[in-house]
């Protein structure tokens, strides 16, 4: 596996995690999550590709998906797990050289 393949995968993963964390930027106690379609739009991915990544990330326990009622309809919301948040945290720390 070439480093570029890891890199391109990780870029998408971290962008997805960032999209979810950013949605909760102004909320400290209540996690509101982000609507799935909005997250896909934020990441600039095709739906098929995004679904594949979401599936993998749910299996890896980085995110959760919950269907919520929205009037007569249902929306799927994506929430980040502490493990996902931790992974994003590590990513920022490595890149911002916050560790020795």
């Amino acid at each position: 596996m070439s480093p570029s393949k890891y890199r391109s995968t990780n870029l998408i993963i971290q962008t997805i995690l960032e999209g979810i964390i950013r949605a909760d930027k102004n909320h400290t106690l209540i996690k509101e999550g982000i609507v799935k379609s909005h997250l896909i739009q934020y990441c600039g991915l095709k739906s098929v590709t995004a679904e594949k990544y979401f599936y993998k990330m749910i299996k890896a326990e980085y995110i959760e998906m919950i269907k919520e009622p929205w009037g007569d309809r249902e929306v799927t919301k994506v929430f980040i797990t502490p493990k996902g948040e931790q992974r994003y945290n590590w990513f920022v720390q490595i890149n911002a050289e916050l560790e020795n």
């Binding site: 596996m1 480093p3 890891y6 890199r7 995968t9 990780n10 993963i13 594949k52 990544y53 993998k56 990330m57 299996k59 890896a60 980085y62 992974r87 590590w90 990513f91 490595i94 890149n95």
Partner: peptide, 19 residues
Amino acid sequence: VKLENFEKRVYSELGESEL
């Protein structure tokens, strides 16, 4: 080097199959 190790770890956590 740290980033590459991190990327490999994330990739392995996501599973071995191609995305």
